[in-house]
Amino acid sequence: GETRIRIELFDLALTELARTERPLAVDSPHPHNRYEVGVVVGHLRDGIAEVLRSADVPAEQLLGVGIGVPGIVARTAEDGAVVHGQTVDWDAVPLERLLRESVELPASVPYWIDNGAKTLGQAEMWFGAGRGARSAVVVLFGSGVGACVVTDP
């Protein structure tokens, strides 16, 4: 989000087991400093460790880590998910590689990193206002504008 990073841990029935939030420095004299890559990676690293510890879930039992980010996500063989996020001044940030280097998880745990509007749209279709619908449009307004259009295949 624009003001915080929220990390949540769920079981297979989608029951929330643990949650933590890390605020982003919204009062910074340089607004884009709050999205500095090292700060975001550190928040994710610490938050993932905290929710696992809080729920007493071993990292080996984690089925995956899903992350919604602002911008376009490309994938490369070398770096995995690479984020191009204009609203946060990220230009080709190798987020997946940075997380794999920083977060203490088994190498077998997959990361699913995608555009935040797209991930929110999918979540709405599965669990939210779009449940049972064949098509939906989800629009986000903030420091940028994002949208997800879901149609019946």
Rank of each mutant, 00 (worst) to 15 (best):
D11C: 09
W112K: 02
E124S: 06
F127K: 03
V83M: 06
A129Q: 14
M125Y: 06
A18V: 04
R6G: 15
V82T: 12
V88T: 04
T15S: 12
L12F: 11
P153I: 13
S28I: 00
L140D: 03
V138P: 00
L9Y: 12
L9H: 08
E78V: 15
W126I: 09
G38E: 14
G132Y: 06
L9S: 06
V57D: 00
A25V: 08
V65W: 10
I67H: 04
G85P: 03
V69A: 02
E36C: 05
G42Y: 05
G128M: 11
S108W: 01
G142A: 09
G130V: 09
E60H: 12
V150C: 05
D56V: 13
L105F: 05
T20N: 11
H84F: 15
H84W: 13
F141I: 11
V150G: 07
G142H: 08
D114L: 07
V150I: 15
A133T: 09
E2Q: 13
S54H: 05
L9K: 13
T3W: 12
S143P: 00
Y35F: 15
A92T: 03
W90S: 01
V137H: 05
A133V: 01
L17N: 01
D89T: 01
V145E: 03
S54M: 06
D91T: 12
R22C: 11
T76W: 04
E104N: 09
P106T: 06
L12M: 14
V145F: 10
R45C: 10
E96K: 04
R4E: 15
R34H: 01
L14R: 13
E8I: 05
G42P: 04
L17W: 09
G1P: 10
R4F: 14
E16V: 02
G71K: 04
P153W: 14
A77Y: 05
L99C: 09
E104A: 14
W90G: 00
A107L: 08
K118D: 12
G66H: 07
Q61N: 13
G128A: 10
E16S: 10
A123E: 12
S54T: 14
L105K: 07
E96C: 02
V26C: 03
V51P: 08
V103G: 04
A81L: 04
